[in-house]
């Protein structure tokens, strides 16, 4: 029960309090690019959570067996290898077993982005236990989707606003909008992640 509570608290923390997309910019490009497609949100949430969680667990297990790796270059190599291996395995199975091409199409983006790749680093720097790593991984997917939903709704607000001056139309207004959301989330932490 305690483990589940800890897991849920870490997940909620990752989604709301320290939303990795809004407070650190992790996965922001992907969040902005998928924000106009809300019908893909659930898939992205599940895939990103899955990849983050599995990668976190494997990296945590490797660290516990091999001892703490100090070199960041070595960490990069290990985490990248784990992520690539997990992705290959899932993508290979998906291409054979799953008929829906949309799912196999978005698998690459869901797996290979800065958010998923950063989760093991965050777990390592925060010295998370295995349960916390799972919570962090699960929270990452939903943090991503929350950010994408906010950005998407903001894009629609901006689109409806006919009074935006031409030089601010498009990405400038979008950047300001996302900046304000990011500023709002700073109210929880008062600072940035790293």
């Amino acid at each position: 029960m305690k483990m589940i509570t800890g897991l849920l608290i870490t997940a909620l923390y990752t989604v709301f309090v320290q939303n990795l997309v809004m407070t650190s910019g992790l996965g922001m490009s992907e969040a902005m690019r998928i924000s106009p497609r809300p019908n893909t949100f659930v898939r992205f949430a599940v895939m990103i959570s899955g990849f983050s969680t599995v990668t976190s667990i494997l990296c945590n297990l490797i660290a516990s067996y091999t001892g703490s790796v100090r070199s960041y270059a070595a960490k990069a190599l290990i985490y990248a290898s784990v992520l690539a291996a997990v992705y290959f395995a899932v993508a290979f199975i998906a291409n054979i077993a799953v008929k829906d091409k949309e799912i196999t199409g978005i698998l690459g983006i869901a797996a290979l982005n800065t958010l998923v790749f950063a989760v093991p680093y965050i777990n390592d720097s925060a010295a998370y236990s295995l349960t916390d790593c799972i919570g962090s991984g699960l929270g990452a997917g939903f943090a991503f989707v929350l950010a994408a939903a906010l950005i998407g709704s903001g894009a629609r607000v901006i689109e409806r606003n006919k009074h935006i001056p031409p030089i601010f139309k498009g990405t400038p207004a979008m950047f300001f909008y996302v900046a304000m959301i990011s500023l709002g989330f700073i109210g929880f932490t008062g600072t940035q992640l790293f």
Binding site: A149, L150, S153, G154, R156, V157, M180, I181, L183, G184, F185, I186, G187, F188
Partner: peptide, 13 residues
Amino acid sequence: CFAVLLANAFSPL
């Protein structure tokens, strides 16, 4: 003020 900004952002949702 941070809460107001977040409420503004969540308002469409």
